[in-house]
Amino acid sequence: MLWLSCVDETAPALPAAWLIATDAQPANLPERSALRRSLACKVLARQFGLPDAAVEIGHEPAGRPLILAPQGSGLHLSLATRSGLVAIALAPRPVGVDVEQVAPASEPPLAMLHPEERRWLASLPASARPETFAQLWSAKEAYVKALGIGFARAPESFAVRLDGAGRFVVDGARNGGPASGFVRLTKNGGHESMAAAFIVLDQA
């Protein structure tokens, strides 16, 4: 699995995720959607060796992005945007990616987490909770995106465990045994701290 950081970088192998820091400050959902689609088209065009205009991205009814053109790639796509940071994930199997801003001044909304996650966060020093919560939440979002259902599955119904070495495990995962993915901290174009997570499922 590869983390890349520029629209002009191509992945020598998949799965891969691009985390692209921008100076953009999209104010609403349509602006965020336009930003991530624009950059995703550029990334996919470079990856496929095509002009930007040859790439088209659509969506399933539930919102999961689809590669409409070029046809027949057989690849799965996931997109996310937060505070100007755009995440793009590409894989041969169902994939999810998410980015979340670390909010040091805010107390994490513990009620939205699984009881195990709440207990773990409560055991940490207060200064460590915002960063850890952002990593947990990005992992949870990435997982339900890979499932293609979003938070139709309640976030408190499954637990994420961080291993401290850039990986996470989803307990109570669907599609077989525990699912695992990758998490990291990065910066956006305004140099705010961000958490990013990426997961590929073994089955559709």
Rank of each mutant, 00 (worst) to 15 (best):
L2I: 12
L4S: 10
C6S: 14
C6Q: 15
E9P: 08
A11F: 12
P15M: 04
A17Q: 08
L19H: 06
T22Y: 02
D23S: 15
A24L: 05
A27K: 11
A27G: 14
N28C: 13
L39T: 03
A40E: 02
K42T: 15
L44Q: 07
F48G: 04
V55S: 07
V55W: 03
P65R: 07
I67V: 07
A69C: 09
P70F: 09
A80G: 12
T81M: 10
L85D: 00
I88W: 02
A89Y: 03
A91T: 04
V95N: 00
V97Q: 00
V97F: 00
V99L: 03
L113I: 02
E116R: 04
E116Y: 02
L121S: 05
P125N: 09
P125D: 12
R129P: 07
T132Q: 09
L136D: 08
A139Q: 10
K140I: 06
E141A: 12
Y143D: 01
I149R: 09
E156P: 04
V160C: 10
L162G: 08
G164D: 14
G164P: 07
G164S: 14
G166T: 09
F168Q: 01
V170K: 02
D171K: 08
A173L: 08
N175L: 15
F182I: 11
V183D: 01
L185E: 06
S193T: 14
F198G: 10
L201G: 10
Q203Y: 11
